[in-house]
Amino acid sequence: MEFSYEVKDSYAEVKADGRLNMVSAPKLREFVTDVIAGGSNRIVVNLENTAFMDSSGLGALIGCLKAARQAGGDLRIAAVQPQVNMVLKLTSMDKVLTAYATADEAFGND
């Protein structure tokens, strides 16, 4: 899995490309923690190229969400693909991790 980020006007966009599994989940947490430490507390994780997520990956997203909120911000997800959407729904975490169609829309009304 490859991570990248870009600081936009009102949020930082993190891209996680590949499989978000037990191998990459701790790396995502570390990556997002560093982005938050760098001064961005409004995070959008763009999952456009995240073809797969398991419960470890979901746990990492929840950890990142808590870290963003502890820093006074929030974390939202965008461009969710079918397998990730399935995991979010089956675990009822779609109510906690709000999904937006695009990264731009995630903080569009705030």
């Binding site: 746990g59 929840i62 950890g63």
Partner: peptide
Amino acid sequence: DEDAESGRGLALIEAL
């Protein structure tokens, strides 16, 4: 709990 970061695997397998 909804903010737990682990413990969902088995339920997920059963649902799948």
